[in-house]
Amino acid sequence: VTLFVALYDYEARTEDDLSFHKGSKFQILNSSEGDWWEARSLTTGETGYIPSNYVAPV
């Protein structure tokens, strides 16, 4: 499992996005959609889309 960590805070703009804070960790579920990845937050357990340029591999 590849884990990613948030580099910045992000406020969701749609109900499909995940809001998160810098330092939040994610499991990436689908990275084939270009700049928006489907991810599960390891902090909240919620699933949604995150901007790929806001995260980096742990």
Rank of each mutant, 00 (worst) to 15 (best):
V1F: 14
V1P: 11
V1W: 14
V1T: 13
T2L: 13
T2H: 11
T2S: 11
T2N: 11
T2P: 12
T2A: 12
L3Q: 07
L3E: 09
L3A: 06
L3C: 11
L3N: 05
L3V: 14
F4H: 06
F4Y: 15
V5R: 04
V5K: 04
V5C: 08
V5Y: 12
A6L: 02
A6I: 02
L7N: 03
L7F: 03
L7M: 09
L7E: 03
Y8R: 09
Y8Q: 08
Y8D: 06
D9Q: 04
D9F: 04
Y10K: 01
Y10V: 01
Y10R: 03
Y10T: 00
Y10W: 08
E11K: 11
E11Q: 13
E11W: 09
A12M: 04
A12T: 04
A12W: 02
A12S: 11
R13Y: 07
R13S: 11
R13L: 11
R13E: 10
T14W: 14
T14K: 13
T14R: 15
E15M: 11
E15Q: 12
D16I: 13
D16M: 14
D16R: 15
D17N: 10
D17T: 15
D17G: 15
D17L: 10
L18R: 01
L18E: 00
L18N: 01
L18P: 00
S19V: 02
S19T: 09
S19P: 05
F20Q: 00
F20V: 01
F20S: 01
F20T: 00
F20I: 03
F20L: 04
H21L: 14
H21C: 14
K22F: 05
K22M: 08
G23H: 05
G23P: 00
G23V: 01
S24I: 06
S24M: 15
K25T: 12
K25W: 14
K25L: 15
F26R: 00
F26M: 06
F26T: 00
F26A: 00
Q27G: 03
Q27S: 07
Q27R: 08
Q27N: 06
I28R: 04
I28C: 04
I28P: 03
I28A: 02
L29H: 05
L29S: 05
L29Q: 05
N30T: 08
N30F: 07
N30A: 08
N30H: 08
S32K: 10
S32V: 10
S32L: 11
S32E: 11
S32W: 10
S32Y: 10
S32R: 10
S32A: 11
E33Q: 14
E33F: 12
E33Y: 12
E33R: 15
G34R: 12
G34H: 12
G34P: 15
G34A: 14
G34E: 12
D35Q: 11
W36F: 10
W36H: 07
W36K: 11
W36M: 13
W36Y: 12
W37P: 00
W37T: 02
W37Q: 03
W37I: 06
E38V: 15
E38F: 15
E38G: 04
E38N: 08
A39T: 01
A39M: 05
A39E: 00
A39K: 00
R40N: 04
R40V: 11
R40A: 05
R40T: 10
R40Y: 14
R40Q: 08
S41F: 06
S41R: 07
S41A: 09
S41V: 08
L42Y: 07
T43M: 10
T43R: 09
T44L: 03
T44K: 03
T44V: 02
E46G: 06
E46I: 08
E46W: 06
E46C: 10
T47F: 07
T47P: 02
T47G: 03
T47W: 09
T47E: 08
T47R: 10
T47S: 08
G48D: 01
G48Q: 02
G48Y: 04
Y49I: 09
Y49P: 02
Y49C: 11
I50G: 01
I50F: 01
I50M: 02
I50L: 07
I50K: 01
I50S: 01
P51A: 04
P51Y: 06
P51M: 07
P51F: 06
P51N: 08
S52G: 07
S52K: 14
S52Y: 08
S52V: 08
S52F: 08
N53Y: 10
N53S: 14
N53I: 09
N53E: 10
N53P: 06
Y54E: 01
Y54H: 08
Y54Q: 04
V55G: 01
V55D: 01
V55E: 01
V55M: 09
V55H: 01
V55A: 04
V55R: 00
A56N: 05
A56F: 08
A56D: 04
A56H: 09
P57V: 08
P57F: 06
P57Y: 06
P57I: 08
V58S: 07
V58N: 05
V58K: 04
V58Q: 07
V58I: 13
V58D: 09
V58E: 10
V58A: 09
